[in-house]
């Protein structure tokens, strides 16, 4: 099985650096985008298996990215995990309603976060396998 490709969209360079290192160590291929506009461009070019999305982004809100992804047929099936410093009380439901598969508040618990990533990737595999057979 090929390595899963994960796109991290976040404007915090240190977070990108640290998360990339962690995910690479888990044998994922990681690509990054630091603003809302390039996020869509990179996503369409690379078609990642999973997107990790921050909500507060330059040049547009994370929710806009989520909506845009749901409008584009090539991106609609890609699972998105929201990772934001924002209050989950106000944002979790909104993010899930907008099509995210999970919401994590920063800083996330590593174990839970990584298992959610596995889950999100595994789920797509399982469903697609399921639907293919």
């Amino acid at each position: 099985m090929t390595e899963n490709k994960i796109l991290i969209i976040d404007d915090d360079q240190h977070l990108l650096l640290a998360l990339t290192a962690r995910l690479k160590a888990k044998n994922y291929r990681v690509i990054c985008a630091a603003d809302a506009i390039s996020a869509i461009t990179v996503a369409r070019r690379e078609v990642p298996d999973l997107v990790i999305l921050d909500l507060g982004l330059p040049a547009g809100d994370g929710f806009r990215v989520l909506e845009r992804m749901r409008d584009l047929t090539d991106l609609v099936a890609i699972p998105v995990i929201v990772l934001s410093a924002r209050d989950p009380a106000d944002n979790r439901k909104r993010a899930l309603d907008a099509g995210a598969v999970a919401f994590f508040q920063k800083p996330p618990d590593n174990h839970e976060f990584l298992s959610a990533i596995r889950h999100a990737l595994g789920e797509t595999v399982a469903l697609s396998t399921f639907l293919r057979t």
């Binding site: 915090d12 240190h14 977070l15 640290a18 998360l19 962690r22 410093a85 508040q105 920063k106 800083p107 996330p108 590593n110």
Partner: peptide
């Protein structure tokens, strides 16, 4: 506070 905290945590 959460943003730098996250970076420290991850590193």
């Amino acid at each position: 506070l959460r943003t730098p905290l996250t970076a420290i945590y991850l590193f």
